[in-house]
Write a protein that binds this DNA or RNA. Sequence first.
DNA 1: GCGCTTCTCTGACAAATGTCATAGAGAAAG
DNA 2: CTTTCTCTATGACATTTGTCAGAGAAGCGC
Lengths: 201, 201
Amino acid sequence: MIRVILAEDQAMVRGALASLLDLEPDIEVVGEAATGEEAVAVVERLEPDVALLDIEMPVLDGIAAAARIRARTPGCRVVILTTFGRPGYLRQAMEAGAYGFLVKDSPARELAVAIRRVLGGERVIDPGLAAAALSAGPNPLSRRERDVLVAAADGSTIVDIARALHLSEGTVRNYLSSAIQKTGARNRIEAVQRSRLQGWL
Amino acid sequence: MIRVILAEDQAMVRGALASLLDLEPDIEVVGEAATGEEAVAVVERLEPDVALLDIEMPVLDGIAAAARIRARTPGCRVVILTTFGRPGYLRQAMEAGAYGFLVKDSPARELAVAIRRVLGGERVIDPGLAAAALSAGPNPLSRRERDVLVAAADGSTIVDIARALHLSEGTVRNYLSSAIQKTGARNRIEAVQRSRLQGWL
DNA sequence: GCGCTTCTCTGACAAATGTCATAGAGAAAG
DNA sequence: CTTTCTCTATGACATTTGTCAGAGAAGCGC
């Protein structure tokens, strides 16, 4: 039996995925988690063969959870399962030591197939997405440019951001300006959007 | 047997929900759809007892699909199943004639319970969400204010929006300004965010 | 060490954004 | 028939945003 734990914040989706996996004769869902932090703890306690992690989770996202799991419980193979097939997400997932990367709009039967393959030592990645991630190149934004973009995303003004990050207003302007340049956008909103699409935030 | 069709754009989630419902001895998933348009067609063809619709779907969203289903196939009861429990969504769903409104972070077992209740003639709505929808009041934005906000959401400039909607630049400014006032925001980004949170877009 | 990037800041300037007053036309409500 | 709302528009104004040039300090790679 392949022992799997499932981390996903939406309870109904989590339950549904569990019932999907329990249909498989060789797979058993032995634990569930609603946040990345819970997932790390559950994996440490139960030592499953595979941890299936959503990215978009509160407290600790799936990618950060993957990194911690690799450090603390290296015997457990991580598969990322996400809504958004963004190049930057895939890159980060690989850096965090994930063995598989699936998007939620691939067919349901792929899930069990992927789990079996990963357990067999294979890496499972959507080929189209892999190509996109490679051709897109790495994240061009610096640490601070990212910080400022994230802070700007909710409609904060320059003054707000400057206060929140303990920077001068001019500095914030400059970071925003360079982030706009690097993303090829015309203003901060487009810059945030494009960066999100690439998985750079 | 309760005959159900399932509309959800993410294939894996759709498959998982189907396996969840098929566990129930009295429920049968007789059809699936990936868009609202497909859902309307499938319902018309199969005349199920219940149509379970996601809101966020391409081509035609779940709320618009619900309205069409009520018009064309009134014998089919619609249940909305959505990621976002936004007051405006609930309001629109009710106006479109939905019998139930569930959010995906409620427990998985609620789904079957809700379907049975709706078939029994009950309306199933999260009580907390109902209260929020009532206390929040109706959408304060006018048609055009909404149009302009939606157009502004992706980073379009005033000029872009004016062109897209065939308006003068000054008019666009005015609509944006009043939308900002009505939402209590400080700029368009905050206005878009707050409106989204309320389900006003 | 030298070059590179990053982080931080300033000042000046042009362009975009948001506000306000005003106004006419049409539709809906009373 | 009057009031109210929405849609449309203009002009003027203050504020915010985005760009650019320049500059010092810290860290990294070779």
